[in-house]
Nucleic acid binder design. Structure first.
Length: 299
DNA sequence: TTAGAGTTTCCTGCTT
DNA sequence: CAAGCAGGAAACTCTA
């Protein structure tokens, strides 16, 4: 998983926006706990409301942005939701993730603080919009489709802020850090953003191959869409190719995505050695040497 | 403003 | 025959 919108960004409008809106509840106006198959993207939601999957997405993001070895963060120690995560102390982070615990803790505090000036539980439930999690991608709907969400607490629809603007604001604040964080890692990142994010380019969120990988790595959220054929070799097979394509389309806000188009993008990965061909087998692919994070004992 | 990355879309031909 | 594969070409979106 790669940072969406890396490095220094054009923050003028988003910074302005955030400075105008110091309360986290205002900075997460579109919080949609389970907007999609995986519960939406972690940076679209306040940490308090992350699902387990979003916690993992956040961990993966930190691995990427801090150039950490995958072994630095034992994911099994973070089989928890956002609420649990937010309740963890620095000591608990350190115990769970060792040296990386400090980074995790600082980043989480940063994210919480980023929008959260108040811990008022009323405020948090007032503005955060919750949707019931839907396991079946065929029936799921996203906020983009309807352009509004239903606020269960108040029985009303809420107009949405532009998600891209919101994400940019979130990520830029995370990566450039205008907040008083003492973490040396974050300071370093502020001083050398380009060095911290070498050749990261992920304009529209997670890459396709990472999206596929994450489905494979999260069987609880993978209702028979893709399965491992040979886990150790990184060989996998699409079981519901069109459903996966639809899911990818949802993620990219592209309702016309098909497996034919998705597979074309997959084939481009051959040249980059992110995927390898598996001859003679339909719907079967294999992770290549440039694909990271799919092995059970990565690195 | 521009170049490049990473798709997305469309296409033709081939294979299963 | 349908579905999937292969890969060229152009268009598109977004970031540095």
């Amino acid at each position: 998983m790669i940072l969406e919108g890396s490095g220094v960004m054009n923050l003028n409008s988003s910074n302005h926006l955030l400075h105008q809106q110091p309360a986290w509840t205002d900075s997460y106006p579109t919080c949609n706990v389970s907007s999609g198959f995986f519960g939406g993207q972690w940076h679209e939601t306040h940490p308090q409301y992350w699902t387990k999957y979003q916690v993992w997405e956040w961990l993966q993001h930190l691995l990427d942005t801090n150039q950490l070895d995958a072994n630095c963060i034992p994911f099994q120690e973070f089989d928890i939701n956002g609420e649990h995560l937010c309740s963890m102390t620095l000591q608990e982070f350190s115990r769970a993730a060792g040296a990386a615990g400090q980074i995790l803790y600082n980043n989480l505090q940063h994210l919480k603080w980023n929008g959260q000036c108040s811990s008022d539980p009323f405020q948090s439930t007032h503005n955060v919009i919750v949707k019931t999690e839907q396991a079946d991608p065929s029936i799921m709907t996203t906020w983009k489709e309807d352009n509004y969400l239903y606020d269960a607490n108040y029985g009303s629809t809420v107009e949405m802020m532009d998600s891209k603007t919101f994400c940019r604001a979130q990520i830029s604040m995370t990566t450039t850090g205008h907040l008083p964080i003492d973490s040396p890692d974050l300071k370093k990142e502020q001083e050398h953003p380009a060095k911290s994010h070498p050749k990261k380019h992920n304009p529209r969120g997670t890459h396709l191959w990472e999206f596929i990988r994450d489905i494979l790595l999260n069987p609880d959220k993978n209702p028979g869409l893709i399965k491992w054929e040979d886990r150790s070799e990184g060989i996998f097979r699409f079981l519901k190719s069109e459903a996966v394509a639809q899911l990818w389309g949802k993620k990219k806000n592209n309702s016309s995505m098909t497996y034919e188009k998705l597979s074309r993008a997959m084939r481009y990965y051959y040249k980059r050695e992110i995927l390898e061909r598996v001859d003679g087998r339909r719907l079967v692919y294999k992770f290549g040497k440039n694909a990271r994070g799919w092995r059970e004992n990565e690195n």
